[in-house]
Design a protein around this nucleic acid. Structure first.
Length: 618
DNA sequence: CAAATCACG
DNA sequence: ACGTACGTGATTTGC
């Protein structure tokens, strides 16, 4: 047995790396005793992030408590794998930092399913996120094991991931090849693998102490663990990629990008992604910029909006405006950039991450944003273009299934009505009125126009997001005077919104600039953006409505059909023959009462591809 | 690593 | 006193 000694917070700790049968028996003897004293921390080291791709390897599985870590070389096979399985069966309380990753790894490569692991798991990353959801860039401590350990456990705790990348370099490996290429026996690799579980074990009681000091309800902690498990199951399931269509589209986009690149080259632009070059070329052609078309650093903007103006094209539809002579360079850059971007960000990524069975398995981070909103990465399926079906067409429902997309109806506004107890808004929602038309009628009278409805909608968004008259004017294009008048009328109509904003801000000053949400979530505010509290309260409560719906959907036996959460929407793949019945059932699971305000959802039944729900379908 | 850009809710 | 658009991920350039 290899043994490494180290010190954490002045305590002597030991990392053990079993080599023989006898060593493995010692491991078994250890966890049988240690697991009676408390939870056992678990971690894995693998060849990378492509859990579901061919050639992916699980290298080590680590177990540990506050003083001892065991690094089991799973990659060696045979008795090592057997030892890991036996330990996972025996131990009844696991601590994992970022459990969904290790759940998926263990499910796929050890064969112990998420359903068995999740009920006995506590995720220290989730707990940390409930204490402070901010990323380090936002003034938070972050939710990585390194920053949390440095804060709670030992300021001198090593950066086990970061330090290893310099070890990789010394071995002639890179960040990308290091995890797969480092020899299994490398001392630093084993020591750091062991330290991770010891740090996790030491972190947990500190997080518990802080959660209880803050009064975060244990019910909320359990709620998040349930949501994380459901999202992990969705990740494991993944979605079918139409590889044939995706390859053809990938080629077509590549061809299109280079075609328009060569057009741009005629005007001296050698790189369509270099703003400085485009700026110079367009200036040389005599184009002029308005005052507000500058970047934060004062440079002339060459973004999509400016290029569309030069090209005499509508920003939204891309249609000819006939307002001026189209600038051919602007048009070539628009087309080349779009094709290149859609290729690299979407189709190429799909082809890069697809597994051997033709499925993509996006990482669903169930509690990512500072409002606890979810995020989806590798690939970022929450941000696929929705203007037409081109990209979403790459993803398919199961064989014999169709896609069903079910959206909440104006959920953030309804949540605002519920949280701020906005009387007239609640009445209108309960009466089944279209909220924006309702507002327009009361503000502009019974003869209100679609333009008036648009202003009302802009103000509703402005209220939730914290924007002012200038922003609403920019977004709606309505005359400033009309916007001001509507804003004043809006405040008279729904006075509770301003009052709630003031109250929440005042309360936050008393609790150290933290807004405690309706579900008991800690939402830290920025001192110079206190007005954002309205948005944080609404966005996070709306996210919790989505989370609650995911639990309802699972209770209704629909988890196998669920594919992706998208903020106010759940995408499902359901049998084509019973699609409308499934749609009704999904709607039912996403419908409930929030303080007297109905939260409602509307399902749309598509065809086999996700794209069928967008733009013109074939 | 910051800035710019563009995709989404 | 007044007014402030909110939250993400990914790619690329250029220092």
């Amino acid at each position: 047995m290899r043994v490494y000694d180290y010190a954490i917070s002045g305590d002597r700790i030991t990392v053990r790396v079993p080599e023989t049968d006898e060593d493995l028996r010692a491991f078994e003897a250890w966890y049988r005793v240690a697991s009676k004293r408390g939870p056992i921390a678990l971690d894995t080291e693998t060849t990378g992030l492509d859990i579901f791709s061919a050639g992916y390897r699980l290298r080590t599985v680590q177990f540990g408590d506050r003083h001892t870590a065991w690094v089991i070389h799973y990659e060696r096979g045979g008795r090592f794998q057997h030892a890991v399985r036996a330990a996972l069966e025996w131990i009844d309380e696991l601590l994992i930092h970022n459990a969904p990753f290790d759940w998926c790894v263990v499910d796929r490569h050890v064969g112990v399913p998420i359903e068995r692991l999740a009920p006995k798991t506590t995720d220290t990353r989730l707990k940390a996120g409930l204490i402070d959801p901010r990323q380090p860039q936002e003034g938070g401590r972050g939710t990585g094991l390194k920053p949390l350990s440095a804060w709670y456990v030992d300021p001198k705790a090593p950066d086990t991931q970061g330090d290893l990348t310099s070890v990789f370099r010394s071995l002639g490996l890179t960040k990308a090849t290091g995890w797969a290429g480092i020899p299994l026996d490398h001392p630093t690799y084993n020591l750091y693998a062991g330290l991770d579980v010891i740090l996790t074990a030491r972190l947990n009681p500190c997080l518990d102490a802080e959660l209880s000091a803050l009064g975060v309800r244990s019910k909320l902690v359990r709620f998040e663990h349930e949501i994380a498990r459901i999202c992990a199951v969705m990740q494991r399931m993944g979605m079918i990629l139409d590889t044939e269509y995706t390859r053809a589209l990938n080629d077509r986009l590549g061809f299109e990008a280079s075609h328009y690149e060569s057009l741009a080259l005629r005007y001296g632009v050698t790189n369509v992604n270099a703003p400085a070059q485009i700026r110079e070329a367009l200036l040389g052609m005599g184009e002029e910029w308005s005052k507000d078309e500058v970047t934060a650093n004062g440079a002339l903007k060459v973004d999509k909006a400016v290029l569309h103006r030069f090209a005499d094209l509508d920003f939204q539809t891309g249609a000819r405006l006939n307002l001026r002579t189209p600038n051919p360079l602007a048009e070539a850059i628009i087309k080349s950039k779009r094709a290149g971007k859609w290729r690299s960000t979407y189709t190429q990524t799909f082809l890069d991450v697809v597994d051997a069975d033709g499925r993509v398995h996006p990482f669903i981070n169930s509690m990512q944003a500072r409002t606890a909103r979810m995020s989806v990465t590798r690939p970022a399926l929450q941000t696929l273009p929705s203007s037409d079906q081109m990209i979403r067409r790459c993803l398919l429902a199961e064989e014999g299934h169709v896609m069903v997309s079910t959206d909440f109806k104006a959920v953030e506004l309804r949540v605002l009505a519920a949280l701020a107890d906005v009387k007239r808004m609640k009445e209108a929602i309960r009466a089944g009125e279209d909220l924006h038309s309702f507002t327009a009628r009361l503000v502009f009278g019974p003869d209100f126009t679609p333009k008036h409805r648009k202003i009302s909608k802009g103000i509703a968004f402005g209220k939730v997001y914290g924007g002012g008259a200038a922003t609403i004017q920019r977004q709606t294009g309505a005359p400033m005077e009309e916007v001001r008048r509507a804003l004043a009328a809006y405040d008279r109509l729904y006075p509770e919104i301003r009052r709630a904003s003031a109250r929440w801000q005042r309360e936050a000053y008393e609790t150290g600039l933290v807004h405690v949400s309706v579900t008991g979530r800690q939402l830290p505010l920025d001192r110079d953006r206190m007005y954002a509290v309205v948005n944080y309260a609404c966005q996070s409560a709306a996210r919790d409505c989505l989370g609650q719906s995911l639990l309802h959907l699972e209770e209704a036996g629909l988890l196998d059909y669920m594919r992706l959460p998208i903020h106010d929407e759940v995408l499902c793949s359901v049998p084509a023959k019973e699609a409308t019945d499934f749609a009704r059932e999904i709607e039912r699971c996403m419908t409930f009462d929030l303080y007297g305000v109905p939260i409602e959802a509307e399902a749309e039944v598509g065809k086999r591809s996700w794209g069928s729900l967008y733009g013109a379908s074939e």
